[in-house]
Design a protein around this nucleic acid. Sequence first.
DNA 1: TATTGTTATACTCTATAACTATA
DNA 2: TATAGTTATAGAGTATAACAATA
Lengths: 186, 186
Amino acid sequence: MKKDEEARPAPGREGGSTAFLLAQLGAHAASRFAEHLGPTGLSPPQVGILRAIGNGAGSSQHALAKRLSILPSRMVVLVDELEGRGLVERRDNPEDRRLYELHLSPRGRQTLESVGRIARAHDEALCAALDERERGQLRALLLRIAEHQGLTPGVHPGMRHVGKTTSDAPQAPSGGRGRRPKKGPP
Amino acid sequence: MKKDEEARPAPGREGGSTAFLLAQLGAHAASRFAEHLGPTGLSPPQVGILRAIGNGAGSSQHALAKRLSILPSRMVVLVDELEGRGLVERRDNPEDRRLYELHLSPRGRQTLESVGRIARAHDEALCAALDERERGQLRALLLRIAEHQGLTPGVHPGMRHVGKTTSDAPQAPSGGRGRRPKKGPP
DNA sequence: TATTGTTATACTCTATAACTATA
DNA sequence: TATAGTTATAGAGTATAACAATA
């Protein structure tokens, strides 16, 4: 398979629009990061939780879930695992006994540093095609867009509710036969 | 909530690494595109299928699935729906009766053009923070990285196998109690 | 035997509702 | 009553195995 007659949109737009390139590279970056994370046994959302707690955002599970756009019901499971591995501590809050305060254990802090090294190596590998000046240019442009789009710095928006076939779509006049006959004999 | 003490990594890296910015903006772009797609009732993978068929990649479902990194078993369902809406046609291949040839119907071609308009509007909205010269710069930098990373032009890699907690991770010495007592009375 | 399309099944992630304890 | 944490459950995406028809 050498000759590749690819998707070829409008002239001057080979490789897709800027938006498509961002989505494509973003998915690639996320996927690779998750791979690099493999040896730690942590998922990307868990890394986000560790980072947020490390920055002092562990006042309660609910507040943390809201900040990271993780559902509270899922947060329970994620923190369960982090606590089970001894990376995160749940402490009772005497002033409001409904809340858990989340804290990093020494082991958790150590793991967070290790994740930081992984992230830097990942960033280096991803940007290997560019020199230092170009990386700075790219960062500046991406930051401008991110700010203009109202994205929260340091928070990955996840893939929540990525457009299911909402079925409020124009249905076809049903030109096909009722049931596909399972590719049977003619 | 005005004062935001965000994730603050290394100095000079406010807002996250370039890799993180790419993942963040990419997820945002994909999410917004899916939203814009709402009125058409199509999901992003289905748009990818329409585009690929429109570019002559409809020799068989299997080949198309491989090109787009969609599982053959999922391709069946996606094409089922496209066929049900009268956008795509499955034609028997007389030379190899195991294969289906996939073709766009006139309605499918019309839908593809409509999707193109949506994509252009989406791109415009996403890049609104940059002027024409800056958009060109950004596109060039992204293309360089995409090529260096070996990404197939025009093909979104999806989010396949995004690092499950592979459990080949260093398990904690089980410092916690066996079962969390459901936040009960002390 | 290998391949294409297909079905069935399992696991994960997302999302919602409901329940308990506390405020 | 309202909120934090939790559980249960349903829906969609991902992945694998197995099957029938065909090569």
